[in-house]
């Protein structure tokens, strides 16, 4: 049961990250493989604010803002120019991969290769039903529940959320209905980027110690969770994150924890082979 508890926290972090990742894919058709790099850069901004005296939960907003601004800039100055020239999706994927490497190793060149940690105590330990959580982990779980609830509210009940879903489903028809899709796409990058920054910070908080390349393999977990739930499906992403988060942590109780990403990769291959549009997606999604 204790690994189930770890799995829940891992799933919460992964859900925050995957929802942002899949929103970018759904609304802008970009498979942003640089997502992990933006996550870890955001985490380092939070970290530097933190070690300069800003309390962790206040510094976190710095990480969120970094994720939002970096993602918006990436779309505006890297992905959009390629899309405007009608480059095929594979070109965008390769560009994103390049950005990921530049972002990660550029950060490493600046901050060095040492592990760092926040000035944040893990807090008291709490036991429920055979699972144990630190106070910090409970806060992370709480943040995930609240933020994912806000995303649900945004997508279901607000004009902006409906316009985002309409743009994702049929951008041309959305424009004919009066939706300024360029504005909607920019806003999507800001919101999904904020989620990316938040996920990066809570990921770093949850792992305890981290360095510039800590999120490099995280893209495998993100892809696995996204394809499991259905590409471009925010609710599918939440479900996929739960399954991948739990399965990787529970399996880590039986096999070497270093193989966590391998478990996720096997899940990804399985989905791509048997149901590439995921559990919540439809064939049309791809």
């Amino acid at each position: 049961m204790s690994s189930f508890g770890f799995g829940l926290v891992t799933a919460a972090v992964l859900a925050l990250a995957t929802v942002g990742f899949t929103m970018q894919f759904a609304v802008t058709n970009v498979l942003n493989l640089a997502y992990g790099s933006v996550m870890i850069n955001s985490a380092f901004v939070t970290y530097y604010l933190n070690i300069h005296g800003v309390p962790t939960w206040v510094a976190l907003f710095g990480g969120v803002a970094t994720g939002a601004i970096a993602s918006w800039l990436l779309n505006q100055f890297v992905f959009t120019p390629f899309q405007r020239r009608n480059r095929p999706p594979i070109t965008i994927v390769i560009v994103a991969l390049g950005v990921d490497l530049v972002g990660t190793f550029g950060l490493q060149a600046i901050v060095g290769g040492s592990y760092v940690s926040f000035r944040q105590s893990p807090g008291h330990e709490y036991h429920f039903l055979g699972m144990f959580f630190s106070g910090l982990q409970l806060v992370i779980l709480g943040i995930a529940v609240v933020v994912l609830g806000i995303i649900h509210w945004l997508l279901r009940y607000t004009r902006l959320g409906k316009a985002m879903r309409a743009t994702s489903a049929n951008p041309s028809l959305a424009r004919n209905s009066g939706v300024k899709t360029k504005t909607i796409i920019s806003t999507t990058w800001l919101i999904s980027g904020a989620l990316c920054g938040l996920a990066g910070t809570v990921f770093a908080l949850n792992t305890g110690v981290f360095e510039a390349t800590s999120a490099q393999l995280y893209i495998v977990l993100l892809l696995a969770a996204m394809f499991l739930g259905g590409p471009g499906e925010p609710y599918g992403a939440m479900f996929g994150a739960l399954v991948i988060g739990l399965s990787t942590e529970i399996s880590a109780a039986y096999v070497n924890p270093q193989y966590k990403e391998v478990i996720a990769f096997v899940a990804l291959l399985g989905m791509l082979t048997f149901r590439p549009y995921g559990i919540f997606g439809s064939e049309k999604t791809l």
Partner: peptide, 20 residues
């Protein structure tokens, strides 16, 4: 073709129609 937003409900399609 592609004259509606398939993942959106009927009500949401009408609401997007009234976006302006």
């Amino acid at each position: 073709i592609d004259d509606v937003f398939p993942p959106l409900s009927v009500k949401e399609n009408l609401e997007i129609g009234g976006y302006l």
